[in-house]
């Protein structure tokens, strides 16, 4: 099972009082896939992601993340995933080096591993000169690339990206997607939310949520064909309006 489907969601429902935030979700994500989790504000994306990351329990349904059960094995789940959001990812008052070390230690990497991988990472990102700079003093585009790199530093099975590219220039945004593609080639499954509909087209498959339900799921080209639309933006408008 787990060989193919690294995320398996069956009849997932989450209620807050009378309000159903996630209404009977069913889908799977394959290992190494780049999966776009789309939906309007308030459609229920964040609620679902919290459950997938082991931070909140569903009201009912079965969810397996990297083969681990969402009810009983949340600690294993946390060890096997990475998470990055636009709102919170790195500590602004810590330096680049301190942030890398902090996250790597949390994920249980040894000091020797950290040393080796840090050098490798900084070289790859061309950051070596910024090693001792505080996060608040580096440009947003760098922050985002670094935040992504720390989220996959421990080589997790899955990385969750919650609106990772907001506000950056079009060149930096594409460099960020190069990192995503690279992670995916290395077998890391990428689960991403975005409001940029062109980015939806970069995903292998996407789902579109509206009012707590998944209204559509498939490859971008399939969805465009099915909804007779030229872009994912048009597909999104047809579903979410």
């Amino acid at each position: 099972m787990y060989e193919n489907n690294i995320i398996s969601v069956k009849n997932l429902t989450k209620k807050f009082g009378d309000f159903t935030a996630n209404d009977n979700l069913n889908f799977d994500v394959k290992k190494g896939e780049i999966f776009g989790f789309l939906g309007a504000n308030g459609a229920g994306k964040t609620t679902a992601i919290k459950i997938f990351c082991g931070l909140s329990y569903p009201t009912s349904g079965e969810v397996k993340i990297a083969g681990y059960d969402i009810y009983k094995e949340t600690e294993e789940i946390k060890r096997n995933i990475g998470y990055m959001s636009q709102r919170f990812s790195l500590y602004e008052d810590l330096t680049v080096k301190e942030n890398i070390r902090f996250y790597a230690r949390i994920y249980g990497l040894s000091k020797i591993e950290i040393k080796e991988k840090t050098d490798e990472l900084l070289e790859k990102l061309n950051f070596t000169h910024a090693l001792n700079k505080r996060i608040k003093d580096i440009p947003l585009g760098w922050k985002q690339k670094l935040a992504f790199s720390t989220a996959v530093f421990h080589n997790p099975e899955i990385v969750f990206l919650d609106e990772p590219t907001g506000g950056v220039d079009p060149i930096t945004r594409r460099q960020f997607w190069d990192l995503i593609y690279e992670a995916s080639e290395n077998g890391i499954t990428v689960f991403v939310t975005t409001h940029y509909m062109d980015e939806a087209e970069y995903c292998d498959r996407v789902s579109i949520m509206d009012a707590g339900k998944i209204e559509a799921i498939g490859k971008p080209e399939e969805l465009m064909k099915h909804y007779d639309a030229k872009t994912m933006d048009a597909v999104f408008l047809k579903i979410a309006r």
């Binding site: 939906g39 309007a40 504000n41 506000g167 409001h195 999104f236 408008l237 979410a240 309006r241």
Partner: peptide, 10 residues
């Protein structure tokens, strides 16, 4: 419109 979904942006 930053952080706002495609429908609300329209």
């Amino acid at each position: 419109t930053t952080g706002v979904d495609a429908v609300s942006r329209k």
